[in-house]
Amino acid sequence: MTEIEPELSLDLLRAGDRNELARLVEAYSPSIYRLASRMLGNAQDAEDVLQTTFLKVFKALADFEGRSSLSTWIYRIAANEALMMMRRKQPAYSLDEEVEDEEGGTYQPKEMADWSALPEAQLLDVEAQKQLDRAIQTLPAKLRSVFLLRDVEGLSIRETAEALSLTETNVKTRLLRARLFLREQLSAYYTEKMALEK
């Protein structure tokens, strides 16, 4: 979840104060690494995105106008880097085609078992954790970025929209789809798990 935004001095950052820059890196690198690893599903790519993000942040700080919060601005740079990395890795794969933002094709839940009361130790055991990781990697990238920023990093709808250059309506539509998609995946898995243990 989001850490409390640390008190950083923009003036010092813009002046290139090394101590302040180090504080910025300390404050945001865990979130950015988390976002990049989950977006890309690969440690090496995540590290590349982490480094490029901060190099760009350092370079662009002078031009940062403070129209969005510093954290949203950093997430925006990181999300762009991660999406560019995906395009480089899978040039044939079009990020634009995979999601339509219309409400069309209204989603119908299929898995109806109630696993929500299973004990947490079981919901998050080693095997289940792997399943969670697999499921999020099968989520289309455009939905994944929204889900990670909003539900995992705790950005608001507006901040998520700013970070991804989307409208708030688009964010809401994608968020609903992402949540329902993951729910479906986890439901299928936990239903089978419950059946096996009977």
Partner: peptide, 16 residues
């Protein structure tokens, strides 16, 4: 199950 799904991802990734 949807609220549980969100919660599980938060707990899982928070540990990263």
């Amino acid at each position: 199950t949807t609220t549980r799904t969100i919660y599980l991802y938060q707990s899982r990734i928070e540990r990263d």
